[in-house]
Structure formats: structure tokens, C-alpha cells
């Protein structure tokens, strides 16, 4: 932390360059992610058509120079749907990571700092953790009806307890630090202590955690769609493409394999990036893992 402020911008750049050379996989993963994000953002300009339009192409046409990724069983263009699907999957990953990290941070700090609430909060978290995440998510989706928002929330809820535990552990260890004890002794208000001393310590591990949450969220979204409890099928997410295509897998495997492999690639990239970030930002955890 301290070292970063003392280096100049060029120094940082050089450091990252050196980091890339020593972590080639992380660098490749970063590039893949950038490409995917760009593809998602620029989807309308990359030779695509209306992703929901049916019957534009003959049904189940294999990949060809005209339709790069072929068509699905309703004659929709798979290339188009894969690009638009990137928007959904990446968005789910991002949203779930942001929501579970911020909620987890809030609950974790409360739990770690307010001992009276701690026992209650942690029992609830234990309870949530002991329900298999995918079942909890399916249950929540069937409660609230499938929409992009509900699916995102349903995937977020099972991720929160892990974040809470991480934050709480950090809070507990930071509380014991002499400078925090000193701050408490001079009567600094709790929110200020949390803000000034606890939060900065949480940031690096949480960034790392966020990447893992994002990766697992993208996978869970696909699994939910596969089981019929995911985002509404009119949304061209990769999970939905695979769920719809699986019936015709033996005749038209590309309908499943193209989004499946793209999804795997995206998650792989996020995970590898997470590992890299961990090595860079949080050497303590890196050593332990």
C-alpha cells in the first residue's frame, strides 16, 4: 500500500509490465477479458442482427462463412446471440460481485465490530451457508419469478456469507492492532475507525474475492438456466442458449458448445486474473492458498 504512493506512474507501469512477464497466464487472461468486454459493448457493430429475431436463417444451420457460428433451432443467429450473451453473463458476474461484496462488507463490519450482534449474524450466515447455493438460488428464483434482477439477487444471496466471514476475520484481527486500540482509547467514533482503519485492510482481499464471486456467479447463472430456473429465455444469455440447444445437441452441437466454451473461457479468464491479483495485492493470502 505504502509503496504504491511513493512510485511514479511510469514506475507503476513498469511494475505491471514486470508482473505480466512473470505471470504470463494472468496477462493472457486480462487480454481475453478485455476482448470479451469490448465484444459485448460493441455487439451491435460486429456483423450482428436482432438477437431475438426468429427465422432469419434456416433452422440449425452449421457454422459457415455466411453465419459464422451457425443458427439455432429457431433460426436465430448464434454469433449474434453469443455476443449479446456476453453482455448478460458479464453483467451478472459484475453485479453479483458488487452486490455481494458491498453487502458482505457492511454485514461483516457490523458483525466484527458489534459483538452483541455478532453471534446472531454469524448463526444466520452459517444457516445460509449450509443450504447448497444452487438450491437456495433455484428456490429464490421460483419464489420471485424469473427476471434478470431476481436471478442476480438469487445468485448473490448464497455468496454473501463467505464475504461476511472474510471481512469479519479481518475486522477481528485489525481490532487487536495497537493503533486501532489507541484510536478507540482516544474516543474515535466507531464509523470513523471502520472507515479509516478497517476498510483499507479489507480492500485487497475483497478485490480478489470479488473475482472469484464473479466467476462463480457466471457459472451459476448458466446452471440455473440449464435447470429451467434462470433468466427469462427471451434474454439471450449463454445459459439460455445452452438450455435451449441441449435438446438438439447431437444434431447441432454448436448451439451448446459455442456459448459453453465462451463461458468457460470467460470464467477461466476471471479466475486466472483473480489468482494473479491475489499474488499481486495480497501476498499473505497468496502464500496461504
Amino acid at each position: 500500500m505504502q509503496s504504491r504512493s511513493s512510485t511514479t506512474d511510469t514506475g507503476t507501469l513498469a511494475k505491471w509490465g514486470q508482473f505480466c512477464r512473470s505471470h504470463p497466464f494472468t496477462a493472457v487472461a486480462g487480454v481475453i477479458l478485455i476482448v470479451l468486454v469490448l465484444a459485448a459493448l460493441l455487439a451491435p457493430y460486429l456483423g450482428t442482427v436482432d438477437p431475438r429475431k426468429i427465422n432469419i436463417l434456416p433452422r440449425m444451420r452449421p457454422p459457415s462463412p455466411q453465419a459464422w457460428f451457425g443458427s439455432d433451432q429457431l433460426g436465430r443467429d448464434v454469433w449474434t446471440r453469443t455476443l449479446y450473451g456476453a453482455r448478460i453473463s458479464l453483467m451478472v458476474g459484475l453485479m453479483v460481485a458488487l452486490m455481494s461484496i458491498s453487502l458482505g462488507l457492511l454485514i461483516g463490519m457490523i458483525s466484527g465490530y458489534m459483538r452483541k450482534l455478532d453471534a446472531v449474524i454469524m448463526r444466520v450466515m452459517d444457516g445460509l451457508m449450509s443450504i447448497p447455493g444452487i438450491l437456495l438460488a433455484i428456490g429464490l428464483v421460483s419464489v420471485s419469478g424469473a427476471s434478470f434482477i431476481t436471478v442476480t439477487i438469487a445468485i448473490t444471496v448464497p455468496e454473501i456469507p463467505r464475504v461476511v466471514r472474510l471481512v469479519r476475520a479481518i475486522v477481528l484481527s485489525v481490532r487487536e492492532e495497537p493503533y486501532v486500540e489507541a484510536a478507540i482509547a482516544v474516543g474515535t467514533k466507531t464509523p470513523l475507525i471502520l472507515w479509516r482503519h478497517v476498510l483499507p485492510n479489507c480492500v485487497p482481499p475483497l478485490i480478489v474475492q470479488a473475482t472469484y464471486v464473479a466467476a462463480s456467479a457466471m457459472l451459476t447463472e448458466a446452471l440455473l438456466s440449464f435447470l429451467g430456473a434462470g433468466t427469462p429465455p427471451e434474454i439471450p444469455s449463454w445459459g439460455n442458449m445452452m438450455a435451449e440447444g441441449r435438446i438438439v445437441f447431437p444434431i447441432a452441437p454448436w448451439i451448446v458448445l459455442i456459448p459453453g466454451c465462451t463461458l468457460a473461457l470467460a470464467i477461466l479468464a476471471v479466475n486466472v486474473l483473480g489468482d494473479g491479483l491475489r499474488d499481486r495485492l495480497d501476498p499473505k493470502i497468496a502464500k496461504r492458498m
Binding site: F25, A215, S216, L219, A222, L223, F226, M242, R246, F249, P250, P253, V256, L257, G260, C261, L263, A264, L265, I267, L268, N271, V272, D275
Partner: peptide, 28 residues
């Protein structure tokens, strides 16, 4: 590194895609 990348791949690959690939190859 290779082992680690494969282990990350294990986290990343949708279970059902692998399942269908296996069925297609070894079953059909």
C-alpha cells in the same frame, strides 16, 4: 503452472457441457 491452469479450468467449465460431450463421444 499447467496443473494449476487445468484446476482453474475445472472450476470454469459448465458441468453439463462436459456431461453432454462425454455422452456424445462414449455413449453415442
Amino acid at each position: 503452472r499447467v496443473i494449476m491452469v487445468f484446476s482453474v479450468l475445472g472450476f470454469s467449465f459448465p458441468v453439463f457441457v462436459l456431461g453432454y460431450l462425454l455422452i456424445y463421444e462414449f455413449g453415442l
